[in-house]
Design a binder for these strands. Structure first.
Lengths: 350, 350
DNA sequence: CTGAAAGCGCTTACAG
DNA sequence: CTGAAAGCGCTTACAG
């Protein structure tokens, strides 16, 4: 089917294509009468401007891209652990884009190896997105940032590990969140609190461990090395590391797993050991994932503003794409986390 | 930054832009020497063809769109139930698209109300995707199908409710899967098996109920009306409906919930009633969602080939986009499901 | 096997 | 407030 073009609308409305263009883009300097005529013609013909033509002729592509790490995402998907983080990123950004007439493209990027440079450069050249939302570990990747700068493509770093000076960022304070959760456990009376560290490729893993250590030290509680166990964000690793913690001569009365999947693994390990959560051992998680609510007991955890972060990122990029390089002040949005108190944490036994 | 165009490559290689175009598109009739020269020039300049220009000039856009229901998806996302189905659809299609140099666009469609027609038409006109993957309930939406046909946009219906004659489809047999799961329970010795129906807007809900009823009847087991409870695919509805089943004078010895979230709700209800799963009551689910593995006991469930369906759909569309309207035989791919036997089902007590 | 010309459907920059 | 011309970076259809 041959589609309706700007020429058809112009002919029907009896104006030039430039006037149609003005109306479609809400530009000023069109008499209301003209505007009405064009709108009517467009409506009758079912006209919708061709995105490729707009993109080629103009300076905007109406596309926002999200960069996610290919290996981690595929691994996450294929291990059937779900992809809650990516889902939330998508939710936040999609809704904003949709309202603004933009389209969201999720792009898998291979961050390891020498082909990053070429892959990202090709993507930017081919797509010419109006903006890119960078998720960890893209948010901190020097090559990606350099190529974006060089291409002049605006971007927002979501939840980056490294601080300012590297371009706009939207993030939350993982250190403070882990500290508050640890304080919550200490406040309940726990002194022996084990910690399960996450996948080292994510900067958040270190941040959460640091928050835990800070809180413990601030309260004068010593942290033997063997209380801090290396996990990888999977249920299985949570189960194994919790088992190791429970086997200690003086076993912890609480386990803080730095994500929910590992926390659920810890609860399973506690049950396997014939113990109760939280009666014998309290468990805290991090993420507020869907399964944190399905577990029994329901998990005490930290809600990250993931959808909010990507929503803010998308808004910033769309604003910028519309207004030209409007706000040149450095963007550094810190969004609040929330401690979700549920049933898996309680005072220690006795 | 001004980008590298086909003219730059042609100049550097000392050929016409048409030859560069031939090389970039792997077209025949280029001498190996020329090909090498062009490739070298393109490599040195870091050339990547502009997608908008290709799309505007040519007959392909290198974009595959996925239509998902806006209301259901937003609801799913915001209720923090995760979006496992969409994640799997994305996994399957993204990987295929990526390998083929295509881009995947997830588009939220409002299926209710009068604006569907305009919204979908505008989307197709603006994007001109090379193909559309329809997920339920888009797969069965008459307006969507009509507009796609009219626009001449190839599509594949994933998991449609209605049968042949409506365009290519890739699906699984929900009725057979529910029948087999019911047979599994009957085979364990259960005779009183309650069923929790899913959200009625999804065709799969009816299919699964039908499978359950067929299996029961085939074995000569009567199904009192109050054994079949209406849920809505949420944990909460599973909990409530299971509670109702457990309150029956002759309570069922098994509950078949037609998705995993409801099955987890049922397990919770059983625990709340001071009973054991599967010791007192067996529970079967449907979906093989991530949380089905995190639950205790782990859930016996049905694994749907969701990623495989979307992967097949993407392959079909890309093939078609490449080869012209190649295979004109009606596509009707039936993909196999798998019963996953885990710990939540066992013989009835006694 | 290779290339010159025309055109895809818009926006930009300019003129009036 | 409105429009005619040029051009965005490719592919198509044709000629040689």
């Amino acid at each position: 089917m041959s589609s309706v073009t700007i020429y058809d609308v112009a002919a029907k409305a009896g104006v030039s294509i430039k006037t149609v263009s003005r109306v479609m883009n809400n530009e000023p300097n069109v008499r209301p009468v003209m505007r009405e005529r064009v709108l009517a013609a467009a409506g009758e013909l079912g006209y919708s401007p061709n995105l490729s033509a707009r993109s080629l002729a103009g300076s905007r592509s109406f596309v926002i891209a999200v960069f996610v790490d290919a290996a981690l995402t595929i691994d996450h998907w294929q291990s059937e652990r779900g992809a809650d983080y990516l889902s939330r990123i998508q939710l936040g950004a999609t809704l904003v884009c949709r309202d603004a007439g933009y389209h969201l493209l999720i792009e898998l990027i291979d961050h390891e190896g020498p082909q990053v440079r070429q892959e990202v450069a090709a993507l930017l050249a081919a797509l010419k997105p109006d903006g890119v939302i960078l998720t960890p570990p893209s948010s901190d990747n020097a090559v990606v940032l350099e190529l974006l700068d060089r291409a002049g493509t605006p971007y927002v770093r979501v939840g980056p590990e490294r601080a300012e000076g590297l371009g706009p960022r939207v993030h939350m304070d993982d250190v403070a969140a882990a500290r508050e959760m640890t304080d919550h456990l200490i406040g309940l009376g726990h002194k022996r609190i084990g910690f399960i560290v996450g996948e080292p490729r994510y900067g958040a893993s270190q941040a959460r461990r640091d928050g835990y250590l800070e809180a413990m030290r601030a309260k004068g509680l010593s942290v033997p090395e063997f209380w801090v166990r290396q996990g990888d964000f999977t249920f299985q690793s949570g189960l194994e590391q919790a088992k190791a913690l429970l086997a200690l001569p003086e076993r912890p009365t609480a386990i803080f797993a730095s994500n929910d999947d590992m926390a659920l693994g810890a609860i399973a390990a506690i049950a396997d050991a014939g113990l109760m959560t939280p009666g014998d051992v309290s468990v805290a998680g991090f993420d507020d994932s869907p399964s944190s609510r399905f577990s029994r007991p329901q998990l005490t955890t930290v809600r990250q503003p993931v959808a909010e972060m990507s929503s803010v990122a998308a808004k910033l990029l769309i604003e910028r794409s519309r207004g030209g390089a409007s706000t040149e002040r450095p963007v550094d949005e810190l969004l609040p986390f929330t401690l979700i108190h549920r049933a898996s944490t309680a005072p220690p036994p006795r």
